[in-house]
C-alpha cells in the first residue's frame, strides 16, 4: 500500500550511503590532485563571470530598492548598510550556490551519467579505480574550496553594484557608502556568510554526483538525472539556508 514511498526512501538512503563513502574516503589515498585542480578550474574559474554578473546586478537592485524604502525615513545614507547585510548574509551565498548548482550540479550529473550509461563507470571499477575516489571526491573537495571563494567575490561585486547606484543616483560619497557598509558587518555575519556556501558546496557536489551515478536508461536517462540534480540541489540549498539562518538568528 505504501509502495509509492519506496523509491524516494531508497533514493535518500542511496544518497546518504554515497555521502558516507565519500567522507570515509576523504583522507584516504589515493588522492587524485590533478582531478581536484581540474574541477576547481571548471567550477571556480568557469563560474566567475556569471557569478560576478549576478552579484553586480543584485547589489545594484538592492541599492535602488533599499534607498527607496529608506527615503521614507530620510535615511538614504544607510543604503550601504542594507546592501552589505543582504548581500553578505543571504543573497551572496544563496545566489552563488544556485548559479553553481545550475552550472555544475548539472555538469556533474550529465558527465557522470553519460559515463554510467556507456559503461565507463564499470570499466573504471574493473580497471582498478573506485569511482567515489576518482570522480566524487575531487568534485566535492573542489566545490567546497571554490564555492566560499566565489561567494566572497559575489559579495564584493554586489557591494560595488550598490555603490554604483549610491554614487551616481543617490549622490552619496564613496566614503559614506563604504564606511556605512563596512561598519554594519559583524563577525557573525561574515562567518555565517561563509559557512553557508561551504554547506551548499556539499549539497551541490553530492547531489550532482549522486544523480549522475544513479543514471539508468540511456541518453534519455542522462537528461532526466541532469534535471533532477539541478531541481533537487536548488531545493536543498533553500531548505538548508532556512536551517542555517535559524541557527544564526538564535545566536
Amino acid at each position: 500500500m505504501l509502495d509509492f514511498l519506496k523509491p524516494p526512501v531508497v533514493a535518500v538512503q542511496e544518497f546518504f550511503l554515497l555521502a558516507g563513502r565519500t567522507f570515509r574516503n576523504l583522507f584516504r589515498r589515493p588522492h587524485y590532485a590533478g582531478d581536484i585542480f581540474l574541477q576547481m578550474d571548471t567550477i571556480g574559474v568557469g563560474s566567475l563571470p556569471i557569478v560576478s554578473l549576478i552579484g553586480f546586478f543584485t547589489g545594484a537592485v538592492m541599492g535602488m530598492q533599499m534607498s527607496k524604502a529608506l527615503q521614507q525615513y530620510g535615511a538614504v545614507g544607510q543604503t550601504g548598510q542594507l546592501v552589505a547585510l543582504t548581500m553578505v548574509r543571504e543573497l551572496g551565498p544563496v545566489l552563488t550556490a544556485v548559479v553553481v548548482a545550475g552550472r555544475n550540479a548539472a555538469g556533474m550529473a550529465s558527465e557522470l551519467g553519460s559515463m554510467k550509461v556507456t559503461e565507463q563507470i564499470d570499466a573504471m571499477r574493473a580497471l582498478g579505480t573506485d569511482p567515489v575516489q576518482k570522480l566524487v571526491k575531487p568534485r566535492l573537495i573542489a566545490t567546497a574550496v571554490v564555492l566560499p571563494l566565489l561567494t566572497i567575490i559575489a559579495d564584493f561585486v554586489g557591494l560595488f553594484g550598490g555603490f554604483v547606484i549610491a554614487y551616481f543616483f543617490l549622490n552619496l560619497s564613496p566614503a559614506q557608502y563604504w564606511n556605512n557598509a563596512w561598519q554594519s558587518l559583524e563577525y557573525l555575519d561574515v562567518s555565517f556568510g561563509l559557512l553557508k556556501p561551504f554547506v551548499f558546496a556539499f549539497v551541490v557536489a553530492l547531489t550532482g554526483c549522486y544523480y549522475g551515478l544513479s543514471t539508468t536508461g540511456g541518453t534519455q536517462g542522462v537528461g532526466r538525472s541532469t534535471t533532477q540534480a539541478v531541481v533537487s540541489s536548488i531545493i536543498l540549498i533553500f531548505v538548508m539556508n532556512l536551517f542555517i539562518t535559524r541557527i544564526y538568528v538564535s545566536l
Binding site: 559515463m115 556507456t118 559503461e119 565507463q120 564499470d122 570499466a123 573504471m124 574493473a126
Partner: peptide, 13 residues
Amino acid sequence: RIGVLFQEGGLFD
C-alpha cells in the same frame, strides 16, 4: 588478473 572488453568498448572519452 582479468581483462574485460565492455559492449561499446567502455573507453574513457
